[in-house]
């Protein structure tokens, strides 16, 4: 939670286990096989500066910078969102999951990054898994992995934005 990982090694696995209201934000540059995953806990940092991955508004720019440092090209970055469930209406009685989704979405829009796939909302916990050069998947407790995006370069044919 509130953690972030980046890898440019094909076959590396980045995993965020048990995402409830949290968001697993995956950003990938498929052409250069660089991928990152941030475990976002809350929508806004409200003056906090660390840990960056904990807050949507800080996590997005930080993840982009870390990916660029690992060799990713910014304009090729694509996003996948997993999590943001409403497990309980307990605590601040606010729907943190939905606010997290919205904040991550806003931060990505501000950076001009397109969301290619997402599995968010509902009331079930999920595990987000990024296998560099292979796929990004989401998994419910005790369920099978659902592939959300292929990271296999050979299959990574993309239509231009807006073509559909």
């Amino acid at each position: 939670m509130g953690e972030l990982a980046v890898s440019g090694t094909v076959g590396d696995e980045l995993v965020a286990i048990g995402l409830g209201s949290c968001i697993g934000l995956a950003l990938v540059d498929r052409a250069s096989n660089v991928a990152g995953l941030a475990h976002v806990v809350l929508p806004e940092s409200q003056g906090k500066t660390e840990p960056k991955a904990k807050f949507a508004d800080l996590a997005v720019p930080d993840l982009i910078a870390r990916l660029e440092a690992a060799g990713a090209v910014r304009r090729r970055l694509e996003a996948v969102l997993i999590g943001g469930a409403r497990m309980f209406a307990v605590g601040a009685s606010l729907d943190i999951g939905a606010r997290n989704s919205e904040a991550v979405r806003d931060a990505l829009t501000a950076q001009g990054i397109k969301i290619q796939a997402e599995e968010v909302g509902g009331n079930r916990g999920r595990t987000a898994r990024v296998i560099v050069g292979s796929e990004i998947s989401s998994q419910l407790a005790g369920g099978p992995r659902t592939s959300l995006m292929s990271l296999n370069g050979a299959l990574g044919v993309r239509t231009p934005a807006g073509a559909a």
Binding site: G20, S21, C22, M87, F88, V90, G91, L94, G125
Partner: peptide
């Protein structure tokens, strides 16, 4: 105490979701 809610799921998802609300912006 408020009204109880019951859910069966991954431990991590349950604990993290409740703690995220309680901890807020603290560390």
């Amino acid at each position: 105490p408020g009204t109880p809610q019951v859910i069966t799921d991954m431990l991590g998802a349950i604990v993290a979701s409740v703690l995220a609300g309680a901890v807020g912006h603290g560390d």
